[in-house]
Design a protein around this nucleic acid. Structure first.
Lengths: 336, 336
DNA sequence: CTGAAAGCGCTTACAG
DNA sequence: CTGAAAGCGCTTACAG
């Protein structure tokens, strides 16, 4: 046990540990770093010295020579896109579940004003070992820039333009198809859909997967931006043009939630009059009333996988890029 | 403009900048750090050399001598308590809004297994300059331990046991009173309340503030844990014992949301039959149908303030502890 | 205002 | 298996 009073004492260095243990600084360093070749008795002596002095290594000094920061960045979209979306909290939890225990620091950043420059310079100056990019805009130059400088990067979805990058995604197309099949099995035939932003791969793929499965190229649809507000406006528009609709697929749970509010406000019952299917299986799905039938993507697992892949790339920056694609599943609840 | 090809070139050091500029390393360092006393022409020369070489300072080396990590920790509750609660995302956003632009790293941690040890050692070894503690349990030994070691700490609420610590809070008691006054002004007289956990200051203070204002010591109540699920169970219990109730105050929006689901399921209309008031004004309030009348605490602003206070403490660790208490406001929407 | 020099606390070839 | 020594890239008194 270390003397608790030592906790607030002056910084103790390896030098001191070595002195107390009667060995060289090099040997003390080897014990601290678990180098296997150290003699057992010496190891014990050093361990005692460490405990007695309450030594903790200075990471900056170590970092200076190892050139590792033991920190990775998690880059989220702009601050304004975070509000009210449970997706990001889930991503954070998933990443944390693998990063936390490893002792590596998880540094959070949002894509605001000078974040791009900061990411690049943090990586270059060895303050960050790698970054996870969440929902980076398709024409953001950052991913390519990082890849070209050979910095470890993992992205949260297939980039719209081909790029030799490691990413994790869910099979969005299959997810859209799952929603369509469910609605068709319910014998709904006046179906509409609120698509996600068509400038994102998720928005595009969910939409085409859905359309291909229903096999109706003229299916009415509008484009939302994944938020609840856009779900509401979209629903209003669709209802105006197609008052007789009997099913809606929204490409996000939040949009489905917004749609349900509007449906109820217009006196329609869910699911009796209109069946509603969402996408994500976020916490918003359970907050719906009735609870939302939705296409589940295992966000926390996906985020954990991103963290693992990044750690692997940090360990071996020249490994070829990897892609991991998860399968979506349909979660049937009350709304359809 | 720096030569883009330099971006991926070998690491360039201050030494090299100095050589290119024809000055000493010390002077180059002064320019990099914006020391005012450097001659204007020399400054320009160094600046040119920096641009030409694409120099970025090695933070580890700087950190080693300045003993500053330029990183602060944000310690959230255990991972399991994060899920589905929009509060934490708002805190993160608020903290980020002041930390982000400063170039200081925001390191995220959750109160899991070995986090306490890691926080202490990160602080001691100079890997973190200070920490913000969010909703730390009242009998967690960590805050006291950090305070005693004189590490910069800011907490998100008044500690239950007296502690010379800097914290930011909202006047919870006043918030409870606000809810009570609104319900009374609505002439509701069969009021019940779903309190927050009584082992937290927020749970206690909201409850006593509410009770004192309604001036009815026998008011029926149950204790939830701020989650939607606990709101549902609590509502079921209260309804069973008091089927004629006409108003409920829930100490969190999430609990209010759960309560509303149960009310609707039992055929009661909100607000006609039962008025509902929540607490937080989180994104969940708008997701309710009807939208929730709630006591707003300005979480993002409070989090930003915590960040500012922490930065101040890092700059001057011996300053006396500060307390900042925000005023809650009532936001009237459809539910009451 | 500027420079030479010491020093921050570690790791890691290199000898032995 | 261990130690002496060099070196990682900065900052900062201290002289001048």
């Amino acid at each position: 046990m270390s003397d608790p009073r030592r906790t607030s004492s002056k910084r103790v260095t390896l030098e001191e540990v070595a002195r107390v243990a009667g060995v060289s600084r090099a040997t003390a360093s080897r014990v601290v770093n678990g180098v296997a070749t150290v003699d057992a008795t010496i190891r014990a002596a050093v361990q005692n010295a460490i405990d007695a002095t309450g030594y903790v290594p200075n990471l900056a000094a170590r970092s200076l020579v190892t050139r590792r920061a033991d920190a990775i960045g998690l880059v989220l979209p702009e601050e304004s896109r975070l509000a009210g979306d449970p997706f990001f909290e889930t991503v954070i939890r998933g990443v944390m579940s693998v990063i936390g225990p490893s002792g590596v620091h998880l540094v959070l950043m949002t894509m605001d004003t000078n974040t791009r420059d900061q990411v690049v310079s943090d990586l270059r100056r060895g303050r960050l070992d790698g970054v996870i990019l969440i929902h980076t805009d398709r024409d953001d130059p950052l991913p390519r820039q990082l890849i070209e400088a050979n910095h470890p990067v993992v992205m949260s979805s297939r980039p719209l333009h081909p790029l030799p990058v490691t990413y994790v995604d869910v099979d969005q197309t299959a997810g859209g198809a799952l929603a369509a099949q469910h609605l068709m099995s319910l014998r709904r035939n006046r179906i509409v859909t609120i698509a996600g932003p068509q400038h994102t791969s998720a928005g595009q793929d969910r939409h085409t997967g859905f359309l291909d499965a229903v096999a109706d190229p003229d299916l009415p649809w509008t484009e939302g931006d994944f938020t609840r507000e856009s779900g509401e406006t979209s629903m209003v528009h669709l209802l105006r043009a197609h008052p007789g609709l009997d099913a809606v697929f929204a490409a996000s749970d939040l949009m489905a939630q917004g749609a349900m509010t509007v449906l109820r406000a217009t006196g329609r019952r869910v699911p009796q009059d209109v069946a509603v299917v969402g996408f994500d299986d976020s916490s918003a799905a359970l907050a719906c009333d009735p609870p939302l039938t939705t296409v589940r993507q295992p966000v926390a697992d996906m985020a954990a996988e991103m963290a693992r892949l990044l750690l692997a790339r940090v360990a071996d920056p020249d490994a070829p890029p990897t892609r991991v694609v998860f399968e979506p599943t349909l979660v049937v609840r009350g709304s359809a």
